[in-house]
């Protein structure tokens, strides 16, 4: 007789959740017929699913609040959520000591997040490229700077990060939502890559420095003056904050 011990517990979960193909399903059903422990586990999982679903079933049939429907009717626009202000207040406490980072109001919060999302996606796609990580290499630094400044619509200097241990590889032109963006890529002696992502900030709104962590990847981003910037790489939070601060200063100069 097959017993619970010979069948992995996950197979019972997968059975309840309809994840098994016909052959596996049949095998489990055979087991259930003879194994009371497996049967009671499966029953318990099913009852739990039912209880969860029943508890939250009403929300599916109740009318959707007008405020939510209104969002779909209104022209696309980003609102300020209360926690963004809370977060801004917290950021003030945390970053206040750094001076100059924080600008008080935070109207570009969600916009900055969208830029950060795009920058992180671009970082993941292009830092993985072995042969073509950049469009224009560092050997054409002046051209790179002139070209990307022109396309982004804001004149900027490609920062020199050699003192921080990073060599410029080059850069490329990308899109961030509806506007052009530039990605600059650098590499350290151990071939670890970081990127700086820049895009115009037409509203000139400003945000505090924000940090987004996605698994091993960490990104710092902010809107300041004519530019929105995102620095992304795999390193610990403190190092990233220091690096972001240095890059922030270079863009102030």
């Amino acid at each position: 007789m097959t017993s619970m011990k010979t069948i992995e517990n996950w197979a019972l979960h997968a059975y309840v959740d309809g994840e098994l193909d016909a052959a596996d399903r049949e095998a489990i059903e055979k087991l259930l017929a003879s194994d009371a422990a497996a049967r009671s586990a499966v029953d318990a999982y099913k009852r739990q699913n039912d209880a969860l679903k029943q508890a939250f079933t009403d929300v599916l049939s109740e009318p959707v609040p007008a405020s939510l429907v209104a969002v779909l009717k209104a022209p696309t626009r980003l609102r300020q959520r209360p926690w963004v202000s809370i977060a801004a207040a917290l950021a003030l406490v945390v970053l206040g000591g750094l001076g100059g980072w924080f600008t008080g109001r935070d109207p570009g919060g969600v916009r900055a997040e969208v830029i950060a999302d795009n920058a992180i996606a671009a970082h993941e796609i292009f830092t993985a490229e072995v042969r073509h990580p950049v469009e224009v290499t560092a050997s054409e630094r002046d051209h790179l700077q002139a070209w990307l400044s022109k396309r982004v619509g804001v004149s900027f200097k490609v920062p020199d990060l050699t003192a921080e241990g990073y060599t410029l590889l080059g850069g490329r032109l990308l899109a961030s939502s509806d506007q052009p963006a530039a990605q600059l890529m650098y590499e350290d002696a151990n071939k670890r890559r970081i990127t700086i992502f820049l895009t115009a900030n037409p509203g000139k709104s400003e945000t505090a420095l924000r940090v987004e962590e996605r698994g091993p990847l960490i990104a710092c981003y902010w809107l300041d003056g004519p530019l929105g910037l995102v620095v992304a790489g795999e390193m610990d939070r403190d190092r990233m904050m220091k690096l972001a601060r240095i890059i922030y200063d270079k863009f102030q100069a």
Binding site: S67, L68, L72, T76, R77, L78, R79, V110, E113, S177
Partner: peptide
Amino acid sequence: ADDVVQDCIERALVKSH
């Protein structure tokens, strides 16, 4: 939850592409 849903749809609209 409804606040988060509202944020979610706003972002979905911005990122629909």
